[in-house]
């Protein structure tokens, strides 16, 4: 390039033309032997350390605070009671009841995750507007992952009509529609209510990669959740909870999400429908700037808690750069991430 070009200090350059800025950072490592660095100083495969802190909120049954670089998420889990009379199309379960399992969780909507981004966590997320498309997508992704991983078992959320000492005539209408009330005497083994877990996530600060942070916060909060021991009070005909007794929620496994974005050499707008040309880089744990410059991203959820790496979910959006090899290689990267996160969750 012989033509006179203007020289700009880095922050100016980043603001004026972010795509070339990131590209230049990735390509202009002084000697080629050194790996490429991103604008945030990290290597392409370098993640930000994750910090998780459990139980900081006293009004929630379980809570966590997860910090991933400058992304900070607060998660509060709160249980509320759903009496079976209020469940439309309730299917009665008995104590030994198997086979329904996960169905109840999903059919009765017992897990309610919601993500709030509009807390001023970043300049583009100001309150007073309905949830953005991103917030809705994130909530739905967390929702479906909660169900597909089966982390929370429905057994923990059932409230039984406890075997009351006298075996008094518990006349609860609605619940079994008479099916179970054949004699109405020995029928302590009935589900009278469910716990519904409201999982609310609040972004305190947003700097990219919201899903990994949100998911880690959900897992940390659920592992920290203890619900009060609930029983059926036949006299008051309602579910009452004990103030002192609490039961820890059983959380199966430790699924960890790992996201990477694909940065292409050609700028977003210009790449038409054709094949991607030029080089591309896989940027692990993208920050806010990088997310706006990448249109392709992959999220893999893995769980290595039983010794073997199991892939729980793979999501990939946009672009055509990620092929079979990359996905396969990504499992190793995700595995490495799992170890890091597992260490942070302790």
């Amino acid at each position: 390039m012989s033509a006179p070009t203007i020289k700009l200090p880095a922050p100016l350059f980043a603001r004026l033309s972010p795509h070339p800025f990131l590209l230049r950072n990735l390509t202009s490592a002084a000697d080629p032997s050194r790996p490429a660095t991103r604008t945030n100083g990290r290597g392409t495969q370098e993640t930000r350390p994750l910090h998780a802190k459990a139980s900081s909120l006293s009004h929630a049954h379980g809570s966590s605070l997860v910090r991933l670089g400058d992304t900070t998420v607060l998660c509060g889990v709160r249980g509320e009671v759903l009496p079976v009379e209020r469940v439309p199309l309730f299917r009665p379960v008995d104590r030994g009841g198997v086979g329904l399992g996960r169905g109840e969780l999903r059919d009765y909507d017992l897990l309610v995750p919601n993500i709030e981004l509009a807390t001023g966590s970043a300049p583009q997320f100001l309150p007073g507007v309905p949830p953005t498309a991103l917030a809705q997508t994130l909530s739905t992704r967390v929702y479906s992952l909660l169900h597909s991983t089966g982390m929370v078992g429905v057994e923990d959320l059932r409230v039984w009509s406890k075997p009351a000492g006298g075996g008094e005539d518990t006349e609860m209408e609605g619940a079994g529609e008479g099916q179970e009330e054949e004699e109405g005497v020995k029928e302590e083994d009935r589900v009278v209510a469910y716990w519904v877990l409201y999982i609310d996530l609040l972004f305190v600060s947003f700097d990219g990669n919201p899903f990994d942070a949100a998911w880690a916060a959900v897992v940390a909060a659920l592992r920290n959740t203890s619900l009060p021991v609930a029983r059926w009070d036949p006299e008051r005909e309602m579910v009452v909870c004990s103030r002192t007794e609490k039961r820890q929620l059983n959380v199966k496994g430790l699924p960890v999400a790992c996201t990477a974005a694909v940065f292409e050499e050609k700028e977003l707008g210009e790449v038409g429908t054709g094949v991607p040309e030029g080089r591309h880089w896989l940027l692990l744990d993208p920050d806010r700037l990088e997310e706006t410059l990448c249109r392709e991203a992959i999220t893999m959820v893995v769980d290595c808690s039983d010794g073997e790496t199991r892939i729980k979910s793979i999501e990939k959006q946009g672009g055509t750069a990620i092929g079979r090899e990359l996905v396969r290689g990504f499992a190793t990267i995700a595995e490495k991430r799992w170890k890091e996160v597992q260490g942070a969750m302790k």
Binding site: R86, V87, Y108, V112, S139, M238, V240
Partner: peptide, 24 residues
């Protein structure tokens, strides 16, 4: 429609059993 709403029936916040526990 923009949020995950949870079960159709309304849920009740836990009611605590104050009778059995000593006055806290």
């Amino acid at each position: 429609r923009r949020r995950i709403n949870g079960p159709a029936g309304a849920t009740i916040p836990p009611v605590f059993d104050d009778v059995s526990t000593p006055k806290l």
